[in-house]
Design a protein around this nucleic acid. Structure first.
Lengths: 146, 146
DNA sequence: TATCTAATTGATAATCCTTTTCAATTAGAT
DNA sequence: ATCTAATTGAAAAGGATTATCAATTAGATA
């Protein structure tokens, strides 16, 4: 299920949070980005068109999204605080080491794997995090040419 | 392949690093712990028996282990800086949300899955990170009793 | 629409966590 | 035993995140 601006607005209202200009601009920046963003990335990007936004508000809005289960944090080798929009309870990402692009993928066999792993180990699995890193198609070509 | 104190000593020598009391104590603390430890955890634990060790040395030793490819960082929901000994290039962990215990597991089918995913998406996969969180066998029992 | 109130904001200070600096110490070569 | 460069601990510096607080504002109410 894709998360839209409308969906997030609804979620904010349902949680009793106000729809402010600042929150909406942060949310739109996260939604419209193809790659993952750190709080500082977001702040810099927003500042170009909206010079008065505060860094604290960026952090606060991200925390809000996180609380509502609409933010997904990535954990690449270099950075653990960048994020994308998305339900964080099941992470399935391809992250390009070249350009930072994030590709979601679905994995039907994961549930099955989880079940057999739980049976083997006696572990009650509640969540998982699965991220592949490497080079996306266009970055592979760039690599070959250089 | 299990990583031992002897193995790490050899690695230090091969990289031209000196075998100091401080390094060995940090390394032993990481090796002997069943759950993952943050730098501060390590520092506090070491301080009990070795009051003069500096926090900076703990950080420096962890970085050294990381450089040599002997440290594996975990990324649980609450914390991204705890670590265990182990090759970090292929993460396969079960992490107990109750007691923090970390269980390694092997996954034969992952390579196969990786191949088909690469074919589907054109992505050249270099690394992955896979962590399951939940409750280990003994914590499940604790939960039921309480 | 005007008014009201509590939530929200930006700026700044405070609080982490981590790295750097530097003089003193020490491992390991000779 | 001596020497030298690596290593150390303490403290300062740096960076990221959170808390504080007066001013502003969203959204409810009349």
């Amino acid at each position: 299920m894709k998360i839209t601006e409308t969906g997030i607005k609804t979620a904010l209202r349902q949680h009793g949070y106000k729809l402010t200009r600042q929150r909406l601009s942060v949310i739109n920046a996260v939604i419209s980005s193809k790659d993952s963003l750190t709080p500082a990335d977001l702040y810099n990007r927003l500042n170009r068109h909206y010079p008065d936004i505060g860094l604290a508000t960026v952090y606060r809005t991200l925390r809000l999204l996180d609380e509502m289960g609409l933010l997904c944090k990535l954990h690449t080798s270099s950075d653990c605080n960048s994020c994308t929009i998305g339900a964080p309870d099941r992470h399935h990402h391809l992250i390009c080491s070249g350009c930072g692009k994030v590709i979601d993928f679905s994995c039907r066999s994961m549930a099955e794997f989880e079940t057999s792993l739980a049976k083997e180990t006696g572990f009650e699995i509640k969540d998982h995090l699965l991220e592949f890193t490497g080079y996306c198609q266009s970055c592979r070509i760039d690599h070959m040419q250089s």
